[in-house]
Design a protein around this nucleic acid. Structure first.
Lengths: 327, 327
DNA sequence: ACTTCAATTGTTATCGATAACATGTTATCC
DNA sequence: GGATAACATGTTATCGATAACAATTGAAGT
């Protein structure tokens, strides 16, 4: 910057102003500065700016996994919306573990992010303490936490499950099982399971079994493998409630091979409105959770935060059942 | 840091050293410093460190899209490998556009990344100038650029296509079409198409048609929509060569509905070894491009760069055809 | 011509950590 | 015990941009 200043014959303060659309610089000077900066190949140092102004221009985000179409979509929506504001995203993946989330948050905080967007409402106590001591604005997504750390945009996983169970019960299914990841990792998955079990109980269905598809994140492969292992034992049930669409698709596909008729012999439901659920034959009954809307709303919340809004609020997004051919 | 120093009764330099495993601090002092820092809730300021040392601790990465299992996998491998080195990833999505890549790279460079990892080998001239003027180490992935900017880990898209075409020709297919994204965006897709067309010509097959599935990134939905629109006109061909597995799956699924027999009436090949290709019925013949290995190799290259290796090198990863039931 | 005010540019100090160097302190050896 | 080395800690200047304030220039009004 000093070099540019010398070349133009002004002070570096003027250069600084000229490069930042600061109104108080004459148009003539501004264009000269711009031109010289370009010619000298000057690259603005955001690190120095972040240091001086104590504003990093970062928003930190934690996702369970980047390799999940829904989270990726939320991320995309968020990052598109933030772009205008000149904010950059610092992304961290928790791999579905709150211990990992803690390490990550600690790491991210050292970069002085201006806000923290976390997926999920379950955090270690240390994580909670860290962000609260910091006083950093927080947005929690994809859940409705019982004691939020800040803004919230999400939905009730248990509530969505309740509709699914009701739907299955209506169409005469009685003996249901929940297919999900092994305990310990995926807390949103665990919530879905708990919601399903509770809903089944309320409707006086027989107790729901749990079919363990492996460690989170569970995917098509896990579903297919589980179904292959169980074979016709799947027909102990008349409905499988899956923690996500990919798992459901894996099972559906394996049922095809096994000659199990879906939905006649076995109903299958998914979760998350993944693309595969809409394209498979038959389509998989699923829950649309508006991943995109969650991302956009989170971005709006950040906008509100940056324009001084201090009292956090909760937005519950709609979930809706998309009836496919598998139930 | 000054507060911690005061509390412990040492200089802030000692605190700085104590927090960084610097050997020259006595164990007693170090533990005291750690303890006090914890108690006061001190959070290290990486921004200041980055500023002072002129090392940001960032590695910048550009991906065409985060919402693509292969790129996501490469990203995962990379970020896992970098974690140990205390490096953080700055991610940017180009949305398959080199103009957008240019803006992104410009932005990322202002953060002083210690290296730049880019997907693809096609860049605007300005982008090339920017990174070269900066002298920043570069890794290009997923392609074999004709004039690399630095290290390269990738494969020949055209080469992989050649194998696919050969495979289809061997099994007697003659009238092939390539299914991909509209021109202009996806350059890797364009390369695949060019490779396919050239290979078909070499084998003296009739000229390959191009079926436009829409703007990149093309996915299951695009494939299904295209097939639905074309209906039995698909049977003008006896083989469809798709730019990626999701597109292939969309077409396969729609063929099911249309009653088109795959592979008897129509062969379908995909690309990328996406999960859906392995789980669908039948499995989709695809090309395994070892996304994970690309990420790991890129990380190794970064390791080499940071330990002083200055001459860039090229690693060509293996691609292999996975024969499924669709060809 | 002189005052007044707005527009434009300049000066100085600063953000928090650390490299480089200087100093102080404790062990080790003859 | 005193010299010497090894270890531990302290001091000072600095990275690049900018907030806050100061100074200068220019235009308008009387």
């Amino acid at each position: 910057m000093r070099d540019v200043a010398r070349e133009v014959g002004v002070s570096s303060m003027t250069v600084s102003r000229a490069l930042r659309e600061d109104k108080t610089v004459s148009t003539k000077t501004r264009t000269r500065v711009r031109e010289v900066a370009d010619r000298l190949g000057y690259v603005y140092d955001t690190t120095a700016q972040a240091f001086r102004t104590q504003k990093s221009g970062f928003v930190a985000i934690t996702l369970p996994s980047i390799n999940n179409a829904n989270f990726a979509e939320t991320f995309r929506a968020l990052s598109n919306a933030l772009e205008g504001g000149g904010l950059q995203i610092l992304l961290g993946a928790t791999n579905y573990r709150i211990e990992r989330e803690e390490i990550l948050v600690r790491q991210l905080l050292t970069r002085n992010p201006e806000a923290l967007v976390m997926t999920g409402g379950h955090h270690s106590q240390t994580t909670r303490d860290l962000v609260q001591a910091r006083g950093i604005p927080v947005v929690e997504m994809w859940d409705l936490p019982t004691s939020p750390l800040g803004h919230v945009v999400g939905f009730s996983n248990a509530g969505a499950m309740k509709s699914i169970i009701a739907h299955l019960a209506e169409s005469g299914r009685r003996k249901l099982a929940f297919v999900g990841a092994s305990e310990g990792g995926d807390l949103r998955g665990a919530e879905r399971r708990a919601g399903a079990v509770a809903a089944a109980e309320k409707l006086q269905l027989p107790p729901m079994d749990f079919l363990d598809a492996g460690t989170a994140p569970v995917s098509m492969r896990h579903g297919a493998k589980l179904a292959a292992k169980m074979g016709h034992a799947l027909l102990d049930y008349d409905g499988l409630v899956c923690v996500s669409d990919p798992v459901a698709f894996g099972i559906l596909s394996e049922c095809n091979r096994l000659g199990i008729k879906v939905p006649d012999q076995l109903a299958i439901s998914g979760f998350g409105h993944f693309e595969v659920a809409a394209i498979s034959q038959p389509r998989i009954t699923t829950v649309d959770v508006s991943a995109h809307e969650i991302g956009e709303t989170a971005a709006q919340m950040l906008g509100a935060i940056f324009s001084g809004e201090t009292t956090p609020y909760v937005v519950e997004v709609e979930t809706s059942i998309l009836r496919g051919g598998t139930t």
